[in-house]
């Protein structure tokens, strides 16, 4: 029976020998998930802020839907993107299925509701605090959004990190739309699933430990940057 120690040993071996296929998989995993996080932030941050500040018909329904979509099963998202991108689907002509772009689209769909929902909650709290002040300054709606997003930047970072955690760890969606093709669409999670099914449990565990390590490093880096930015801003060195 494979032990956790064997997994650590395998992970260390892969890292110390600069295993080329491991680094290829890690880089693709990061490229796909970080790009998905970027697009999710681009959509989710303003969407969350709009939902927090603006009142419009259908807003409560939209909030319920976005909250519900936070728990979307990755395989369902994968299936939807597959249907959209497959040759007979409406976007089949683009030829994106089984490419990293398809995986980015799927992960973006998966984590945008998380970023938008957490942003909405954080901005709602800030809006209660700053509504009268910003109206008092006669701030325009876009100035209000920009200010609230900046004031809530550390909370936003938490939402983005939660999104990244979900993206880097999911396997169902990228497996369906990426196909786990060696040297093309294989990422850490699909590689782990493959090695497990082949019985290479040591290698699978080693890859798993590398995956957890990446998530921890990204979190530390992001929080450190957030801390520095927060301190500099408070001291008036930024803006």
């Amino acid at each position: 029976m494979i032990s956790i120690l064997d997994g650590f040993s395998e992970a260390l071996h892969l890292l110390l020998t600069f295993d080329a296929s491991l680094f290829e998989i890690v880089l693709l995993s990061l490229r796909v998930s970080l790009t998905a996080v970027f697009f999710s932030a681009l959509i989710g941050l303003p969407l969350g802020a709009l939902l927090a500040v603006l009142k419009f018909p259908g807003r409560p329904v939209l909030i319920v839907l976005i909250n519900a979509f936070m728990g979307l099963p990755p395989v369902v998202v994968g299936l939807i993107v597959y249907l959209l991108l497959s040759r007979s689907g409406p976007l089949g002509v683009l030829g994106l299925l089984f490419t990293p772009t398809a995986m980015i689209i799927a992960q973006t769909m998966l984590i945008t509701p998380i970023v938008a929902s957490l942003t909405r909650q954080a901005i709602s709290d800030l809006w209660v605090e700053y509504r009268d002040l910003l109206h008092s300054f006669d701030a325009k709606p876009w100035q209000i959004m920009k200010t609230l997003l900046w004031e809530g930047r550390l909370s936003m970072m938490t939402g983005i990190l939660a999104g990244f955690g979900r993206a880097i760890a999911e396997v169902g969606a990228v497996m369906i739309v990426g196909g786990n093709i060696d040297h093309a669409t294989r990422v850490l999670t699909t590689a782990i699933a493959l090695e497990t099914s082949k019985g290479n449990l040591g290698l699978a565990l080693g890859l798993g430990i590398v995956l957890v390590g990446i998530a921890v490093v990204i979190n530390i880096l992001t929080l450190s940057v957030g801390h520095v930015v927060g301190r500099q801003t408070a001291q008036g060195q930024i803006l």
Partner: peptide, 10 residues
Amino acid sequence: PVLLRRSVCE
């Protein structure tokens, strides 16, 4: 007082 999370000057 409602103050932004910024410096006094800001």
